[in-house]
Amino acid sequence: MLTPASSFFRYDPFADLDRIARGMNRAFPRSWATPTSFPAVNVWRSGDAIAISSELPGVELDDIEITVKDNVLTLSGERKAPEAPEGARWHLRERSYGKFSRTVQLPYAVDSNKVEARFRDGVLQVALHRPEEDKPRRIEIKAA
């Protein structure tokens, strides 16, 4: 299940996101898929940037697709099952495989030309930025 971060902060711009996620969890019971919707996503906001990290163990770099449109980020791909030789006996099977797709609603529309993604040790990190023209501007006040 998803854990709301709201209790840790005085205000939570992600409250809506959390509410949507909870709704999704109700609509799609746990038994349908892996315990939490895969992949799990962490979202951090700092200044005019958003940092997203996601755990994708066992996924190849070429099998990850990230798309950004306005304020929606989609993370999709496939986790391929390892090949097991003939006559292999499984003693434990806790991991899951297959296609996945997740959308993350961002607090604001981001600059789709300024997205940086890095995949290391099975962890994906995406940095997104607020477009220049949307940044709040300081207005000079002229003395009369």
Binding site: T3, A5, F14, T36, V41, N42, W44, R45, S46, A51
Partner: peptide, 12 residues
């Protein structure tokens, strides 16, 4: 987690 991270939303 970024050092200057502001409010966040964590699933893991």
């Amino acid at each position: 987690r970024p050092e200057d991270a502001g409010p966040g939303y964590a699933e893991y």
